[in-house]
Design a protein around this nucleic acid. Structure first.
Lengths: 114, 114
DNA sequence: ACTCTACTACGATGAATTTCGTACTACCAA
DNA sequence: TTGGTAGTACGAAATTCATCGTAGTAGAGT
């Protein structure tokens, strides 16, 4: 059984977490994991990049501690490490997701005030 | 009188704000502005980079909307755009500063548990 | 055993970021 | 008007990042 390395809570670095979440592709992955229930294989995300680029983004998220990746047969199941992140950097993840939702709402709604 | 461009609240992009705060030098600047009262000239920060690199980081922060820069004579006074950021992306700035303080505390304190 | 699926590893490439030094500008003060 | 202060602009170099294609692997299904 293959396994993948993850940072422990204490090993999580703010630098890495912020950099991971600063990229729109990766933030999309994190947001989808937050919105959905349970695990999700990499292939289910329909990202606007190639498969090898997707691998790179998933690895970046994992190494930052944002997601957990576990093999299940040939698939990798991804979960958001919400509990760990909340324990390590309280409020950060929720604030980022809230901000993401604000921007997403603007993208569809008619621009109102600045 | 020279002036500098700033994004309005609505023009602030989450991408840019997170990228701005992901860099340790820039995050240090933002944190110091948060901790201190009033305005602060660029030169007062004692950053571990050259003057021209510092200019680059201040500009990055300003263009993301994190700080406001206003000329005052030959100096530039920097302020944290806390109200604007809080209005635009509620809770984000506070969560980042809290996280930064957690890491800073670890750096000085003896490592305890992960 | 073969094939399919879902991924990774590797190497390459182009873009963006960070860094710097030098030269410059705007303003203040003597 | 001469000089000092606090910054910018520009160009260059080094590094990192995001991207891809190709080739490969581990496990599941037939």
């Amino acid at each position: 059984m293959r396994t993948l390395d993850h940072p422990s809570r204490g090993e999580m670095r703010l630098d890495a977490v912020l950099a991971a979440l600063a990229d729109p592709v990766r933030r999309t992955v994190a947001c989808k994991l937050n919105d959905a229930f349970g695990d999700h294989a990499c292939a289910t995300f329909e990202l606007p990049v190639s498969k090898s680029t997707a691998t790179y983004h998933f690895r970046t998220l994992r190494e930052a501690g944002v997601i957990r990746q576990e093999y299940e047969g040939t698939k990798i199941m991804n979960t958001l490490r919400k509990d760990d992140l909340d324990a390590r950097f309280p409020g950060l993840l929720d604030a980022v997701f809230a901000a993401q939702n604000i921007e997403r709402a603007e993208a569809t709604a008619p621009e109102s005030r600045d």
